Amino acid sequence: MFEHFTHRLVETSEANINLRYGGSGPPVLLLHGHPQTHVMWHRVAPRLADEYTVVCADLRGYGDSSKPPTASDHEPYSKRAMARDMVEAMQDLGLDRFAVVGHDRGGRCAYRMALDHPDCIAALSVLDILPTYEHFTRTDMAFAMGYWHWFFLAQPHPIPETLISADPDTFYLRRGRTMFEPQALAEYKRCYSNPITINAMCEDYRAGATIDMKLDEADKFAGRRIACPVQAIWGLKNGLERWYDVLAVWREWADHVEGHGIDCGHYLAEEAPDETLAALKSFLQRTLKTR
């Protein structure tokens, strides 16, 4: 699925990060969502690598990256910790400044990286998300019903782990499976069927409801903003646009914001790879050439 890409397991100061990289040109880091792995980019990354050095990495807790022990404050699964991993992994590859594209949970790591490591991030593209703080503070019944898994996965161990482990396919594939290539789906299932991974993914959401929320809140009230250009794209069939003015919300966090909806569901890079690739290329060509 990643012909001409090189596989590496990069040892950072806190975790081992599983990744693939290929291509040449300005560097772009692609980060996946829940409960997937870097394989979710298989329809986009090879074509993006025609013009860019593309790195696809598994977040800590996911895929074949480390699943470190957690802590009472869930900091080991915070997006700040994940961001540290990715900055170090990119530096290990000799890439000190790069664009980052993140879908779902990867998008949360990506915007945290832009806030915490502004000198490293040249451009930021987020797929189908808003900042964690905005979701939680704007929660109403519609959001809670649509995003119920946020509140379920954040429950104390071992409640969600026990229930999910009884039938991982039913839980993780509840949105369907036809949008996934069989080879990609097999990879997701291999990873999300591992009880250690299930626990780590729950820790990701526990961190989201605790330390990630606190970090976002502190930045919001301190007036910290994302310095680099930001692109937000989202699936029109997933519902984000029904609840929010997506670009208006992101403009509360950054000065340079652009983007649009794409006619697909949540999994943009797999449901609408051509449209997703076109949007990314347009944004990257303009932002990476001018900075």
Rank of each mutant, 00 (worst) to 15 (best):
residue 2 F to S: 00
residue 2 F to H: 01
residue 3 E to A: 06
residue 3 E to M: 02
residue 12 T to E: 02
residue 14 E to Q: 12
residue 14 E to G: 13
residue 17 I to S: 10
residue 26 P to W: 03
residue 28 V to F: 03
residue 29 L to R: 07
residue 32 H to A: 11
residue 34 H to F: 15
residue 35 P to L: 09
residue 45 A to L: 00
residue 47 R to C: 01
residue 49 A to Y: 01
residue 55 V to W: 03
residue 56 C to Q: 00
residue 58 D to S: 09
residue 59 L to I: 15
residue 60 R to I: 08
residue 65 S to F: 12
residue 66 S to P: 08
residue 75 E to R: 14
residue 77 Y to P: 07
residue 79 K to D: 04
residue 79 K to V: 06
residue 84 R to Q: 13
residue 84 R to I: 13
residue 102 G to C: 09
residue 103 H to D: 06
residue 104 D to Q: 13
residue 105 R to G: 09
residue 112 R to C: 06
residue 115 L to K: 10
residue 115 L to N: 09
residue 116 D to V: 07
residue 117 H to R: 04
residue 122 A to N: 05
residue 122 A to W: 01
residue 123 A to G: 09
residue 124 L to E: 00
residue 125 S to I: 10
residue 132 T to F: 03
residue 134 E to G: 06
residue 134 E to N: 11
residue 134 E to W: 11
residue 137 T to C: 02
residue 142 A to V: 15
residue 145 M to V: 15
residue 147 Y to R: 11
residue 148 W to L: 02
residue 151 F to R: 05
residue 152 F to K: 04
residue 155 Q to N: 05
residue 157 H to C: 09
residue 164 I to D: 05
residue 167 D to H: 11
residue 168 P to W: 03
residue 169 D to S: 11
residue 169 D to H: 08
residue 171 F to W: 08
residue 172 Y to C: 10
residue 173 L to Y: 08
residue 184 A to D: 04
residue 186 A to Q: 06
residue 186 A to D: 08
residue 194 N to K: 04
residue 196 I to H: 11
residue 203 E to V: 00
residue 203 E to A: 01
residue 205 Y to G: 02
residue 206 R to W: 05
residue 212 D to H: 07
residue 219 D to A: 15
residue 221 F to P: 14
residue 222 A to I: 15
residue 224 R to H: 15
residue 231 Q to T: 10
residue 237 K to W: 13
residue 237 K to G: 15
residue 238 N to K: 06
residue 241 E to W: 13
residue 242 R to M: 15
residue 245 D to W: 15
residue 245 D to S: 15
residue 248 A to V: 14
residue 252 E to W: 07
residue 252 E to N: 12
residue 256 H to W: 00
residue 258 E to S: 10
residue 258 E to W: 00
residue 260 H to L: 03
residue 260 H to C: 08
residue 262 I to T: 12
residue 263 D to Y: 09
residue 266 H to M: 05
residue 267 Y to H: 07
residue 273 P to K: 01
residue 274 D to N: 08
residue 275 E to F: 13
residue 280 L to Q: 13
residue 282 S to V: 11
residue 287 T to C: 00
residue 290 T to S: 05
